[in-house]
């Protein structure tokens, strides 16, 4: 039986070897796929912080993913058309510089999750699931019926946003950019989980009343972790828009929330690399089964049900028998 640490090293090895293979066999498509895995993995890592470690079952993370995506698309849309984004209180122009877009996407999705968190963390259990879902749906319908930015048709950006001195249109460059964000978000999660704050939010998952009784304000802890989680997912959304050079209301759809959740669960809940593995598995399944049959989601559903019924520790749990997720 191999340990999780050993397994994680293999993941890094694979992450580095994939683009090299892509280059050797001259298949840039694989690099793009690997980039997609990484971006979805980042989104999952964001959700995992709230869902896996703190037990906040958010069914509305598509909201943050989508907002990150829309911020990116809107900024570059204005930059390309050279229009003013806001003229009040002072003129703000769009930008296609990732160095501006990333912080903005993170900030705005953090702000959004602050608002949603403030309102929805007052409830718990089923109601929390439902209210986060409702907020995401709210944004979804808003994006559909708001005609300025494409409405139902979505918004295309013709050029990927730029970074100084780099050609982001090159698949390999963009892959490495996303990889560095992945390692950053894994590092941040790792530091968070092992900090006193991390102890607090993991304890909340086990027994909120007890955490309260030792004098920790659980509401603030939950709110903070929800905001961090939303911000990371928002960043992933921003990268995802740049990958596709397109954003549409479907990123805000509740199925996106479900899929991000599926990454977390498939890979192994409350494990640092779990969402990444889950995303990889998801994409591989989509690509291989999708080649044989249109109905690959049928098999995805089947696998998911089997996992929930019989193998609740996820893919990583199959390798590492140390129980991490127990009720």
């Amino acid at each position: 039986m191999i340990s999780e640490q050993f397994f994680n090293k293999w993941i890094w090895f694979l992450l580095l070897i994939t683009p090299i293979c892509g280059l050797i066999f001259d298949e840039p498509y694989y690099i793009t796929l690997a980039t997609k895995v990484i971006i979805l993995g980042i989104a999952g890592i964001g959700l995992n912080l709230a869902l896996g470690y703190c037990g906040l079952i958010s069914f509305g993370h598509a909201a943050f993913f989508g907002i990150g995506g829309y911020v990116t698309a809107i900024m570059s849309y204005h930059a390309i058309n050279n229009e003013i984004l806001f003229s009040w209180p002072f003129d703000i122009f769009g930008s296609s510089d990732m160095l501006i877009i990333w912080p903005l996407a993170i900030l705005i999705s953090a702000f959004l999750s602050l608002i949603i968190g403030l309102l929805s963390l007052r409830t718990s259990g089923v109601y929390f699931i439902m209210i986060t879902l409702a907020f995401a749906q709210m944004l979804y319908f808003f994006s559909i019926s708001w005609p300025n930015y494409g409405g139902e048709d979505g918004l295309s950006i013709y050029m990927r946003n730029s970074l100084p001195m780099l050609n982001t249109m090159n698949p390999l460059t963009f892959y490495l950019i996303c990889l560095s964000w992945l390692s950053t978000s894994i590092y941040v999660s790792y530091k968070l989980i092992n900090s006193p704050f991390g102890m607090a939010f993991q304890a909340i998952k086990q027994n909120e009343e007890r955490v309260k009784s030792v004098g920790i304000e659980t509401f603030k802890v939950k709110l903070l972790i929800f905001v961090i989680s939303g911000a990371i997912t928002g960043l992933a959304g921003s990268l995802y828009t740049d990958l596709n050079r397109f954003v549409s209301p479907s990123v805000l759809d509740w199925q996106t929330s479900g899929e991000i959740m599926v990454f977390v669960i498939l890979g192994g809940i409350a494990r640092l690399y779990g969402p990444l593995i889950g995303a990889a598995f998801f994409i591989i399944l989509e690509q291989t089964l999708g080649a044989y049959t249109e109905n690959w989601q049928f098999w995805l559903g089947l696998i998911l049900i089997l996992e929930i019924l019989y193998a609740r520790t996820g893919i990583m749990g199959l390798f590492d028998k140390k129980k991490k997720y127990e009720k």
Binding site: G125, G258, M261, E294, Q297, L300, I308, L309
Partner: peptide, 30 residues
């Protein structure tokens, strides 16, 4: 399927029934 889920927490129920949606929709499309 569902019979095994009553004692599980909400997360499992949400996910299992989400999986059922995929299963049934694709099955019907088939």
């Amino acid at each position: 399927i569902i019979r095994r889920l009553y004692r599980r927490d909400h997360l499992d129920q949400v996910l299992a029934t989400f999986a059922l949606i995929l299963l049934l929709s694709e099955g019907v499309r088939w």
